[in-house]
Design a protein around this nucleic acid. Structure first.
Lengths: 203, 203
DNA sequence: CTTGCACTATACTGACCAGTCAACTACGGT
DNA sequence: ACCGTAGTTGACTGGTCAGTATAGTGCAAG
């Protein structure tokens, strides 16, 4: 992976920020350029279309998240603690955005996915791929829970997917009700869904 | 509630259909008018803005769904059967749309919610209200499960919300992966989340 | 016949959209 | 000093957007 030019990076980050805050359809290329302090010509020098930029912005943001998730889901820690840290991470993220924008923003990948899955196949695929990557973290966590004996599951892959459905749905609800406190029960709901055997939770 | 003029009804139904299939931002008032066979002047006679129409279309669609859900969630049936019927209803809906449009469309309220919650407060509120109505069905179902002894829950309201998070998240995943078969495990996942005691399922 | 009203028809406005283009600058290699 | 290339600039295009203006229609009541 060669390094990006600063212009390109600025565009990627500005685009994700603006789209995350409102939506793909309501953010214009001009908006992104103005906010990024880049001329439109440079934009189309760097990206061949708005849709292209969205895909690249997801890739860029995904790469940053991957680094964080590698720590959050480190196999060094017991699996239940990984889940707890993941939930905390989600809440921190959403809280930070809430203070910055005064609104619950939800997940940017889900936003793009729900808005454009039926219209833009490239974007749909990128969202699918990104969410799939997260599922893989959850999957290995679930598998470790099973081998520990904390959780029973015939199909850990399927259980991880169900867990992720629940988490994404909860974040969506928080966005729609514009209410951060809906995330307070995120972990306890996940624990219930997993049907963990001994009731215990870290500090 | 006085009855709507046929023009208005046609606009409401066409609008929901088009928005559901793509998105609010990508459907223009002209698109809606053309498809509905209505002139633009009539549109703005009937609704004061595009956003207004979206809210009215949700209300219209919600009212139709309410009639169906009153049957699906009829207190005459045992609560677990209600859940099963609800899941089946969701799958049927999605399957029908899939065959009609060749794509998994997901939930129209969630689409509008995820796309516009941060931008249009009227739309956000309408989505919130509509989803709240569905939660109430689930809530009374959960309460009946608890009184039956099939499920244990300190806070049935919270459990119903968690269940709905899971269901909405699963539908979102199906849309993003454009894969109906992700809904096959909808019921079994719900049952696991609820942590029902005796394993049984109706025919 | 006529007045008033609910509704329809269509042309229009001005803003904004994604994307293009040709001219320009900065700079490393020779 | 010269060139080639990578990147920048901002004006421009043609089309589309939400919303408006205004004239017209059909019809029912007086």
């Amino acid at each position: 992976m060669r390094q990006e030019s600063p212009t390109k990076t600025k565009l990627l980050e500005t685009a994700l920020e603006l789209i995350w805050e409102s939506s793909y359809g309501s953010v214009s290329v001009d908006d992104i350029c103005t906010k990024a302090g880049v001329n439109k010509g440079s934009f189309y020098y760097a990206f061949k279309s708005k849709s292209d930029l969205a895909v690249a912005a997801m890739e860029h943001h995904g790469a940053q998240k991957r680094a964080i998730f590698d720590q959050v889901f480190s196999a060094q820690r017991p699996p239940l603690e990984r889940l707890e840290r993941y939930c905390r991470q989600v809440i921190e993220d959403q809280t930070e955005k809430f203070h910055k924008y005064g609104k619950v923003l939800g997940c940017p990948f889900c936003s793009l996915g729900y808005e454009l899955s039926t219209q833009d196949e490239n974007i749909r695929r990128k969202v699918e791929q990104t969410l799939g990557a997260v599922t893989r973290y959850l999957e290995s966590m679930v598998r470790d829970l099973v081998s520990e004996g904390t959780v029973e599951a015939k199909d850990p892959k399927e259980l991880a997917r169900e867990l992720y459905s629940y988490l994404m749905g909860a974040i969506m609800q928080a966005k729609i009700e514009n209410n951060l406190s809906l995330l307070d029960h995120l972990l306890s709901g996940a624990v219930r869904l997993l049907n963990v055997k001994q009731a215990e939770s870290a500090a």
